[in-house]
């Protein structure tokens, strides 16, 4: 009797949210965004671009605001400011004696502050809260179109140049030696990073988008020694986190972006503790004893 009650309850827990149009859309779009960010994150974690990801994702803020104000696609503004911030970081680093991590921190907080000031000054219907913390439950139709377009673009670019990008992350000197255009690959990865940051911020917001770009890759890195598997695990863990995070936020009335990232963090923690080869408890050894 009790069991039967529980059974009905669980089904309704899973199915009820799906009866809402906004929930279906949020689940679909967030899964797409998570898949794209997860795909990219295996490159970023191996390249060691976590801090760069943080910088770019914060720096796109003024671009998003200006684009909204001018009625342009927000991805265009974000892209210009994302790549611009990296160019500026490179320039300041080269022309001054300040260390690189200081320059990165300095440039992206500057851009971020500019974005916040612009939001308060430009009278428009931009909701600061939804940019900072994401609003997967309130994605508009035009946003959906842009997100799908950008996601496809990033996936196609990463797939076509997949082997070159792996080589670029692994051994750029060899790439250069055999006549591969390393500078192009550098900016290609940077472009994908900016674009992924733009779609990711709708889901979890600017503040947390870097987690979408590094955590799935880091989790997958602990679980495999093959790049292909790493990408697959990364994408799957990102999608699961997104879906589960949205459900959690629905059930317990939590901030959606925060709960998505928190699920990702728990997945990393689980891999960190129990990964067969690289976890601290090394489950494989544990099992092989018995």
């Amino acid at each position: 009797m009790d069991l039967c009650f529980l059974n009905i309850n669980i089904t309704s827990y899973v199915a009820d949210p799906l009866s809402h149009e906004f929930m279906r859309k949020a689940l679909l779009m967030s899964s797409l965004v998570a898949a794209v960010c997860g795909f990219l994150s295996s490159y970023l974690t191996l390249k060691g671009w976590a801090l760069m990801g943080d910088a770019v994702s914060h720096s796109v803020m003024p671009g998003v605001v200006v684009a909204y104000a001018l009625g342009l696609p927000f991805s265009l503004g974000a892209f210009i400011f994302g790549v611009g911030s990296v160019a500026l970081i490179g320039f300041v680093k080269q022309k001054s004696r300040v260390k690189e991590d200081t320059v990165i921190g300095l440039v992206f907080t500057g851009f971020f502050a500019l974005g916040i000031v612009l939001v308060s000054k430009i009278k428009s219907n931009i909701d600061l809260h939804s940019i900072l913390f994401g609003s997967p439950l309130g994605i508009s139709l035009s946003d959906v179109k842009q997100t799908v377009f950008i996601s496809l673009l990033v996936v196609i670019l990463l797939s076509v140049f997949r082997k070159d990008l792996i080589l670029y992350c692994f051994d750029p000197r060899h790439a250069k030696t055999v006549g591969i255009n390393v500078l192009f690959l550098h900016y290609l990865l940077l472009t994908c990073l900016s674009l992924a940051a733009v779609v990711g911020l709708q889901s979890v917001g600017i503040v947390l988008v870097v987690a979408m770009l590094i955590t799935p890759g880091a989790t997958a890195y602990l679980l495999t020694d093959k790049f292909d598997n790493m990408t697959i695990i990364s994408v799957i863990s990102a999608i699961i986190s997104s879906v589960f995070g949205i459900y959690l936020s629905f059930w317990f009335d939590l901030e959606t972006g925060g709960s998505i990232v928190l699920v990702q963090t728990f997945m990393f923690l689980f891999a960190f503790l129990f990964a067969p080869r690289y976890g601290i408890f090394k489950l494989k050894k544990f099992f092989s004893k018995y």
Binding site: L46, K163, D164, I166, L167, F170, D171, H174, A175, V178, I180, Y221, T224, D225, K226, F227, N229, M230
Partner: peptide, 13 residues
């Protein structure tokens, strides 16, 4: 995360 085969194949890229 690349294998011996992957690395040697990079010589052909």
């Amino acid at each position: 995360p690349v294998s011996v085969w992957d690395v040697v194949m990079m010589g052909r890229y």
